[in-house]
Simulated assay, not measured.
Amino acid sequence: MKRVVLFLATNLAVIVVLSIVLNILMAVFGIDFGSYQGLLVFAALFGFGGAFISLFMSKWMAKRSTGAQVITQPRNDAERWLVATVERQAKQAGIKMPEVAIYDSPEPNAFATGPGKNDSLVAVSTGLLRSMTKDEVEAVLAHEVSHVANGDMVTLTLIQGVVNTFVIFLARVVAGLINSALRGNQQGGHHGGGGFAYFGLVILFEILFGALASLIVFYFSRQREYRADAGAAKLVGANKMIAALQRLSQGRESQLDDRMLAFGIKGKLAKGELMMTHPPLEKRIQALREGRF
């Protein structure tokens, strides 16, 4: 229930903020959203705006969706070791010390998120701490620190913003042309006369183009996992990272919700690699063994 409330609250906040910006653009700059140029501005506003608002809210969302507790004052040796390890790795990677958190989950997993290299969060599950050796946990932490150092959160947000923009734009253009043809409207235009048929077509094409665009996002998501594995290998050694991935392969697929899935160290299985946010663990292990870092 909490995840549903957070999802609705986030999307409501995005809509409210972008609607205000949209009205300001119309009033101040007199942008005609009935033209193709205006439609592209509209698409970019909602495409990039939604992606960046989600990015800036990512730490807040992650803490609340997983129940992650940030370690402000370590209470035991395990927490002191976690904080000290992330601090050391952050210095090696040349980034500001991330917040370090633990969340309660039986599955071994970890994630990194945040709006930038100097404002990030690294969190590990209790299941990971219980099931892995210190060397393996160190490698997982190095993987997450590498995500932050590589700027992966911002990169994926930019990619998501681009594909969102084109999905929104193309769906309305194609829907308008089809609706105009069906109604015999010779003027055309992306509105296509409006009406329920037009908006129905927009929804249909947004679903279709969105599914195709997801393949692009999934591809870049998989590539960033290889880069983070390579970064971890440089920080702690390839053998430790291989051992950590082998340990992860013994557990079940990720139980993180869809909004957090791409940020976890392991993802969910899918029918075909094209639909996966993470490469298969055996491929990641092979890449490390072959020295592709």
Rank of each mutant, 00 (worst) to 15 (best):
E253K: 09
G231E: 08
L245K: 08
V236F: 08
A44G: 12
V16C: 14
A230F: 14
G231N: 05
F56A: 06
A68I: 06
K240T: 06
N76L: 04
V163P: 09
P108S: 02
I31M: 08
F199T: 04
I207H: 14
K96D: 07
N239S: 12
W60Y: 11
V173E: 00
W81N: 01
F169N: 00
H278P: 11
S54H: 14
Q255D: 05
V236A: 05
A90E: 01
V148W: 09
N164Y: 01
V17E: 14
Q187R: 13
L39V: 02
I95K: 03
T126L: 03
V137A: 01
R252G: 03
A244R: 05
V162A: 01
I159E: 06
W81E: 01
V4P: 06
V14N: 15
E206R: 10
G184A: 07
K234Y: 03
Q37P: 12
I15L: 11
N164A: 00
L121A: 02
T66L: 06
K2A: 10
S65M: 09
T72I: 12
A84L: 09
M241G: 05
L208K: 01
V5I: 11
S105I: 05
L215Q: 12
A175S: 00
A84W: 13
V14K: 15
F48Q: 07
V83T: 11
G127F: 01
V16G: 08
P280N: 10
V5Q: 09
Q186R: 03
L158Y: 13
G116T: 06
K240D: 04
I159M: 09
V14W: 15
A101C: 04
Q255A: 08
Q37M: 15
L281H: 12
T66Q: 05
S35W: 01
P108Y: 08
F263E: 03
A228T: 06
G272N: 11
R64Q: 08
E136S: 03
A228K: 12
G161Y: 03
A44W: 09
A211L: 08
A238C: 13
S221Q: 11
F209I: 00
P108C: 03
E290C: 11
K283I: 13
L177I: 00
I265S: 06
V162K: 02
F209R: 00
V154I: 13
L245G: 04
F29E: 10
R252T: 12
G188D: 05
N164G: 01
P279A: 12
F209T: 00
T277Q: 11
L256N: 03
A230D: 05
A175G: 00
A142P: 08
Q89N: 09
A13P: 12
I203Q: 11
F29H: 10
E206Y: 10
R247W: 11
